[in-house]
Write a protein that binds this DNA or RNA. Structure first.
Lengths: 344, 344
DNA sequence: CTGAAAGCGCTTACAG
DNA sequence: CTGAAAGCGCTTACAG
């Protein structure tokens, strides 16, 4: 009697036991159309042999031969699991996992180290059938290579790099900004000031555009001011009031320092929020201590994750092709910092 | 002139351009010892050719040939990213990612669906070089197959199944229980009651053992009572007091309903905690609304994740072999529910 | 110092 | 209806 096979069984082992060829095992166990033309007996014997031996296909070999692994890559440019919750990818991951599970894919999570090993590392994502990218960073050259090779890539978050050829599922900041402005208009405000940061990020421009559109649509007076957090003080606030401004809208930024500066200035100037002046942020007021419930809008993070993964699967399977860009509408968060304007 | 090569370049293309064989390209571009014996000129020409063509190795092919993926599997028996934070694997994942990143591994996350597809699905983990398992469920047959094949497996959490052959990094409940008892002894308590649930989970037995050991070591009087949450009421509490018990210790369980019942009973019986009686839990008091700061102990979850991943890597690389079991000591959490015993 | 060859475990035309 | 063969793009002894 021969030794028990210790190594994991391969198709050849199953074939030997079932009395068929290795290729037949492959078709019998696979899902290709050729499977239909195998006899019931063969199918049965192969299935039995496979079960007996505990055969499991080697996904790597399968991928090499068939060019598919049923794996979705997830590439983040910082730790996927940051300890600080503030800008955690967690809600995105929840959505991504849901979609992946539903569609029968597993997740290949590239860790910080491999990511930071320089540009080449990005190519590792090819182990998966397609890859999701999270984070602000866009390694254009590397992505260009992937796109050129027809490799499916989807960003979570709107990206305008690479001549707009990147697929993404992002948040509609224009719509989010409009919701906030409409909320203020509904309360009776007519003169709004928008304070944005001094950089030119895409999201910033989008928010400003949303501000202007909604202001125009609602027939309000609006003005925009670029500011550093350090330049916002009690005097500035008072001069805005004097000029008739009843609501100040600001941009969400990294540490929300613009928002923090506005709150501090209101305190210093003895301006009651929202009785004397309303305050809103185009985004979420996270990261502040203590956390005031500031009016703003929330990104549908989990839904973005779900949609991004679903889109990636469509791209992988060829159900959709080319560049697909999708924007999800944020939801208005009415906090304690907005109310009717003071009586004139 | 021939057509431009549109498909991504492979080693054969680089070889042609550099005027060497494909195998030489492999060694020149790789890290094997054989590389040292290539001439400087060859190395240079290959490097140049690779750069010119934009060659990037195919990770899949490399894996198939080299029998290693630099991937660590993570298998959970529920969603890896549950929406309810209570029994979230998040802290474990943070630790796992850290270790993996530091050691140069990426993570292969098996999603709920693939996991629930029945026993066979577990075998999919073989795509990774080794696999971490999270969750109470232990699919013995499947794991047996993996172990028999010499496949490295590490559980996060102590597991006694499979005749103790499972490697794990768990929490030392015995030590945790002892910490709580010692804390009470230090406060002056001499008569303790331990209320545990009616099931026989390993963790429950460990906690009870820790209770008894610490009670004995501190020279206290102790008693253990098994109870359903529904059987704990004001009368029970009062009879315990009458018998001289000054501190009640309970087990952490799924919904912490034992703890909740004790808190409710104290309220009903008009027993002030901790003035009249101290209360502690062998674990964390999560899941209760409102959340009282109950004395207990916290598992070092992130550290468990880190250690588990590091252990798995050791098993994968052969630095350690066989079954390795490691227990991490929890840290005492002193809450508002314990104090000195009432004057006698 | 380098090349020819085998092989990793599959899939997929193709021949019969 | 099934098998023989080629090939996916690499790594790794081994021969020279």
């Amino acid at each position: 009697m021969t030794d028990v096979i210790r190594r994991r069984p391969r198709q050849a082992d199953v074939a030997a036991l079932a009395g068929v060829s290795q290729a037949t095992v492959s078709t019998a166990l696979g899902t290709s159309p050729a499977r239909a033309s195998l006899s019931a007996g063969t199918l049965e014997r192969v299935a039995l042999a496979a079960r007996t031996l505990g055969y499991v296909p080697d996904p790597v070999a399968r991928r090499l031969a068939a060019q598919s692994t049923d794996l979705l890559g997830v590439y983040t440019f910082t730790d996927a699991f940051p300890v600080e919750v503030r800008d955690s990818y967690y809600p995105f991951l929840v959505g991504i996992e849901r979609s992946a599970a539903r569609l029968g894919y597993d997740l290949l999570l590239f860790t910080g180290t491999s990511s930071s090993r320089g540009g080449e590392a990005v190519q590792k994502v090819r182990l998966a059938d397609g890859c999701l990218f999270l984070g602000r960073h866009v390694p254009e050259e590397q992505l260009q290579q992937l796109l050129d090779a027809g490799y499916p890539v989807v960003y979570v978050g709107r990206r305008t790099e690479l001549g707009g050829r990147l697929s993404y599922v992002g948040a509609d900041y224009v719509a989010g900004a409009a919701q906030v402005v409409d909320h203020l208009a509904g309360l009776g405000h007519t003169a709004l000031l928008y304070v944005r940061g001094t950089d030119d990020a895409v999201a910033s421009a989008d928010r400003e555009e949303g501000f202007w559109r909604a202001v125009a649509a609602a027939g309000l007076r609006g003005q925009v001011q670029r500011a550093y957090a350090s330049s916002i003080d009690a005097r500035a606030l008072q001069s805005w009031r004097a000029s008739g401004v009843t609501a100040v809208v600001t941009e969400e930024n990294d540490a929300n320092d613009l928002l923090a500066a506005l709150l501090a200035a209101a305190r210093d100037a003895d301006v009651a929020v929202p009785q004397d002046m309303s305050l809103a942020v185009l985004g979420e007021c996270g990261g502040l201590e203590p956390a005031p419930r500031v009016t703003g809008f929330a990104l549908p993070r989990q839904q973005m994750g779900e949609d991004a993964a679903a889109l990636l699967v469509d791209l992988v399977t060829g159900r959709r092709t080319g560049t697909v860009q999708e924007l999800l509408v944020p939801s208005l968060l009415v906090g304690e910092t907005t109310g009717p304007p003071p009586p004139a």
